[in-house]
């Protein structure tokens, strides 16, 4: 259980002046997909839970709830993290991006389009998390080798076995980006 608010977080000042928070719900401001939300959460609430249960952003999936599968991957200031391993209170002023915020409502990101084109989807439960990691990879490394893609998604579990098509989809998306 979190007892102290992390004082090194930029937003620490926003919260009540107390050394301890909880066990009851506390107010929290989260910046998600470009919007600011004020919510009330108990301190042990993870970012994944806050997104799914309070903000109805259910595109972020929870499969193991302990950092083993990466289904819950979102970005914090553009960097992929397992949102089941981050407390909502720890997020602070960092910008959260979820699968719903990857692009404007209608348009698909080239990686999303490539996932469809290459059928890098079966049941689709791992898919949002995988896409968040793959898009983040292309932002860092626009022309990854297959080896780099494998490394970038090595924390993701896909029980349906979409990995071969994920690899070809990301390679293709990288080529499209170039074009």
């Amino acid at each position: 259980m979190l007892e102290k608010t992390p004082s090194d977080r930029p937003d620490a000042a926003q919260r009540p002046e107390a050394d301890t928070v909880g066990p009851h719900a506390v107010p929290l401001t989260l910046r998600v997909n470009g919007m600011t939300h004020t919510l009330s959460i108990t301190p042990e609430t993870t970012l994944a839970q806050a997104l799914r249960e309070q903000l109805d952003l259910t595109g972020t999936k929870i499969a193991c709830d302990r950092g083993a599968c990466s289904a819950c991957t979102v970005w914090l200031d553009g960097a992929p993290v397992c949102s089941c391993m981050v407390l909502a209170l720890e997020v602070g002023a960092r910008e959260v991006t979820t699968i719903e915020g990857l692009t404007d409502r209608e348009a698909l990101h080239p990686v999303q389009a490539a996932f469809i084109e290459h059928d890098a989807i079966q049941c689709g439960f791992c898919t949002p998390g995988l896409i968040m990691s793959c898009v983040a990879l292309l932002k860092r490394t626009p022309h990854p080798s297959e080896h780099e893609i494998r490394a970038a998604i090595s924390g993701h579990l896909c029980r349906c076995g979409t990995y071969p098509h994920v690899l070809s989809a990301v390679l293709a998306a990288a080529r499209t980006e170039e074009a």
Partner: peptide, 23 residues
């Protein structure tokens, strides 16, 4: 033909409703 999955767009955008998402 290798027609692209019709529920692909819902699945890649997180819009597909799984049972755990039902509220």
């Amino acid at each position: 033909q290798s027609t692209a999955r019709l529920n692909g767009p819902a699945k890649v955008t997180g819009r597909a409703t799984f049972t755990v998402d039902v509220k």
